[in-house]
Write a protein that binds this DNA or RNA. Structure first.
Ligand code: MN
Ligand code: MN
Ligand code: MN
Ligand code: MN
Lengths: 228, 228
DNA sequence: CGGAAAAGTTAGGATGTACTAACATTCTGA
DNA sequence: TCAGAATGTTAGTACATCCTAACTTTTCCG
């Protein structure tokens, strides 16, 4: 039976298959089909393994694959991916809010629990959190119906001098990066004002709640904002 | 890689293997080695599948198997089983106490989450519950060191007329049974007094907090008590 | 005690997932 | 444009887990 992820759905996918769909969903957000090697890099598997899995997912009607050209989610696959992302983000929120996890620590735990938690559990967590709309890193939580606010946000790197904006979200991939951001005061909800931008991809100097902070251009590109 | 349960331990077992160890632990409590067909029945797999798994577990040094005679846990296997049971019971307690699950509903959820939850998560749950020593059905929670209070308790069926005792725990296998018990007021902690015992495995009549209740002999044998 | 029933094991096959090595296609830059 | 680099697929293998069917061992009872 090869370890299906035994949640409450009957014809449930394995956790592996779910993770592939999620990765394809994220990669596809660029507009391009998800490339085999990008999926492989994201999941830490060999490209050959991805080719194999894509064929299986295509057979199940979850993705459309064009040989040598990459994969796109079919509507049922998109639905699976969005519900998985919902589970992931609600779990992250719950761990951070109710169990004192630090925001840089929730991701790995959620990455496993998302495949084991039933819809019942997820909805109880959401309930007890007051139905949050964003996870601890500001990422929007898809609804049960699969709606998600996917507007693409500007990053701090795209702001202009003297502009003020509110931090909405940041990349949650690297715990060390999140700890760094928390250290300098960059968390969802805070307001930042650009003081100066050094040329040639130099550091961005900004003001956060009266404090001066200078961050690298790369970091600035990973922190997303919206107008106040 | 066949879906190891990716918790925090490095050479982690799969969730399947963990469940086999847990079942062997429970079956072995009778004193006898766990029989292949009993393990199979418990897990809902064919006996042949059990033979195969026992060989793998033996190769890993987790069980000792005597061909045609059944399996016993080796110390490392016992340790795995006890930690899994700890995880299971803490999860059950958490779901019941913190997320409003009914006590007949926690088991299936815990059966999956126990393989995905890290030690970190379990300890945070335990912490937030005030380090409970028993799960919602009164089953004792093994410590981190693997100690567990395994005294064998008398059941209501073994009580004598006019005797009073406190309900400690009950079998948690069947949700309908748990709902029934809750319905008649039999939950851990309540005091019961035997009013009458009908012969030939007849019903047991008892008093629970001023109320008269009559339960079948089979049910009485699944509810365990201790002296007040 | 001895043979039938029950219990357990092995053989052989399926599926999911992964790997490496070899081959095929697509892209890219001189 | 076109050859080498980059990317992707296939072939062949491994392993965990499950199954059924056939065989073996143990148990039990007349
Ligand atoms: Mn995951
Ligand atoms: Mn997140
Ligand atoms: Mn389990
Ligand atoms: Mn329990």
């Amino acid at each position: 039976m090869a370890t299906p992820s035994r949640r409450d759905t009957p014809g449930a996918l394995t956790g592996q298959a779910e993770d592939y769909l999620k990765v394809i969903y994220h990669l596809e957000r660029s507009g391009e089909a998800a490339a085999t090697s990008d999926i492989a890099a994201e999941l830490g598997v060999a490209p050959a393994s991805v080719s194999g899995m894509l064929q299986r997912l295509a057979r199940l009607g979850l993705v459309r694959v064009e040989r040598y050209r990459g994969a796109r989610l079919a509507p049922p696959g998109r639905h699976v991916a969005l519900q998985l992302i919902r589970r992931h983000r609600i779990i992250e929120s719950f761990l951070a809010t109710k169990l004192g996890y630090s925001w840089d620590d929730v991701h790995d735990e959620a990455e496993r629990l998302e495949h084991a938690a039933s819809t019942e559990l997820i909805e109880r967590m959401a309930e007890s959190l007051g139905h949050p709309t964003a996870d601890p890193h500001g990422a929007p939580i898809p609804t049960v119906e699969g709606r998600v606010d996917e507007r693409s946000l500007r990053s701090i790197a795209e702001m202009t001098v003297r502009e003020t904006a509110r931090v909405v979200r940041m990349s949650d991939r690297d715990p060390a990066f999140l700890r760094y951001l928390a250290g300098v005061g960059l968390t969802p909800g805070v307001e930042v004002t650009i003081v100066a931008i050094a040329p040639f991809d130099g550091p961005v100097e900004l003001r956060i709640a009266r404090k001066r902070v200078s961050i690298g251009a790369a970091a600035a590109g990973q922190v997303f904002i919206e107008p106040v």
